[in-house]
Design a protein around this nucleic acid. Structure first.
Length: 401
DNA sequence: AATCCACAGGAAGTGCTGGGCG
DNA sequence: CGCCCAGCACTTCCTGTGGATT
């Protein structure tokens, strides 16, 4: 091995990580601690598939990072291993495929049916799906993950059709596993869909602090070299995640990023300080990432809020923002959007946590929203500076009066 | 008790994109 | 080719409202 090889080799062979992939959020491990009960229950529900019978539809509830997706994927994998070609398993993330059309198109792809990503009517895609599935003469088990996102955005029409599809199938059958982290969302569902989809229900409780520690311990053995984690690291990750509704994904993210930071610094050990840095970095990355990809007019709205805060305006309202926003548009030679639209943009920014907007009534002086910035000045600048069309305005906003 | 502000936020419609079908 | 479709960003028009002021 020559010197160059050694440089490459040092890069390649991490002193920290053995295999960081097992800390990634979409990794499904061979063992899921503290989910035995859910695994067995889901397995029991799906077991009839082995004899060619149609399992009941299942509804899975639980907060983010409680293992819903991992358990569903895990059980399906095991089932598939036993059943072989007799069953077709499908997984659709409804946050990504968040329209009726796309969900159906995604399902079709598991049957090797090509559908264009636009152009057909939804009814036509449904027809093709039914025809394609029936031709297979098999059972299909379809996981619809984050199903609440679909229903909130596009209604339950597709779910209605999918739950009734078995009536139109002669040789095949379809079972649906719906996953949601929003417990209240079934209120939006048609009663028939609700009862059909909820033939069986599974609840995933949040992980406790102790359980999170177990999960991290197990994964850390695979992910890190021996002895690189300082003693308090895993407890700290678990404690932070336990506070946020027992979110295992968060715990794993913290551990992974802490490791990455340690590696970048050339440290030989991962310390609690690395975890604290990781926490800050994860939060900042999230915000900056959202900011960067914001449409231009949302950025201008945001800059207006920023400017008004700089001017120490006591109560920033929709109207004040709109006035300033119009000026920014003029300065850039853009046609301003209507106030109605800007009001919606403010709501979107509120939902992203970038702004805090609260409806208040000032009596005689009307009903409006009081709006404040929900992120640090540093994140805001970092997120907006690289957009050439607003960079100048960021500087301008810094000047007072 | 009535008024009225400054909007919130629903409903419906428009124009455009990117694609299909016959 | 002309027409249709879904989705999106946006506009237009609208009704509703909490509470300080009259």
């Amino acid at each position: 091995m020559d010197k160059l090889d050694m440089i490459f080799e040092r890069m390649l062979s991490s002193r920290i990580f053995r295999n960081r992939e097992v800390l990634r959020p979409d990794h499904v491990p061979d063992e899921l601690p503290h989910r035995e009960e859910q695994i067995l229950k889901l397995g029991a529900i799906l077991a009839p598939a082995l004899k060619g019978a149609r399992p009941s539809n299942v509804f899975i509830y639980g907060q983010t990072g409680t293992g819903k997706t991992a358990v569903a994927k895990y059980v399906l994998r095991r089932l598939k291993a036993k059943a072989g070609d007799k069953v077709i398993t499908a997984y659709v993330n409804c946050r990504e495929a968040d329209t009726n059309y796309r969900v159906l198109a995604d399902l079709c792809s598991f049957l090797d049916i090509h559908v264009p990503f636009t152009g057909l009517s939804t009814a036509e895609v449904l027809r093709r799906f039914i025809k394609g599935l029936d031709r297979k003469g098999k059972l299909m088990i379809a996981v619809l993950d984050e199903i609440d996102a679909l229903v909130k955005k596009s209604g339950d029409a597709v779910l209605y059709h999918l739950t009734r599809i078995n009536a139109s199938l002669e040789r095949s059958r379809l079972s649906i596993i719906g996953i949601t982290n929003d417990l209240k969302f079934t209120e939006y569902l048609d009663a028939r869909v609700k009862s059909s989809l909820g033939e069986e229900e599974l609840v995933f409780p949040p992980y406790t602090y102790e359980e999170l520690k177990d999960i991290l311990d197990m994964r850390a053995q695979e992910a890190f070299h021996e002895g690189v984690l300082e003693e308090g690291v895993i407890p700290l990750c678990a404690a932070i995640a336990a506070k946020e509704h027992g979110d295992a994904r968060k715990a794993l993210d913290l551990l992974r990023v802490a490791g990455e930071i340690a590696e970048r610094e050339g440290a030989t050990k991962v310390t609690e300080e690395h975890v604290r840095k990781a926490r800050r970095e994860l939060e900042k990355d999230r915000v900056v990432d959202v900011l960067r990809t914001l449409p231009l007019h949302s950025k201008l709205v945001l800059l207006s809020v920023y400017r008004l805060e700089k001017l120490r305006i006591r109560e920033i309202t929709t109207g004040e923002i709109y006035n300033l926003y119009k000026e920014l548009c003029k300065a850039l030679g853009l046609d301003p959007l209507t106030q109605r639209r800007v009001s919606d943009l403010i709501s979107e920014l509120d939902m992203l946590g970038i702004l805090n907007a609260r409806v208040i009534s000032r009596g005689r002086y009307g009903r409006t929203r009081r709006i404040r910035l929900g992120i640090s000045e540093r994140s805001l600048k970092e997120g907006l500076m690289e957009d050439p069309s607003v960079r100048g305005l960021v500087h301008w906003s810094l000047l007072s009066s």
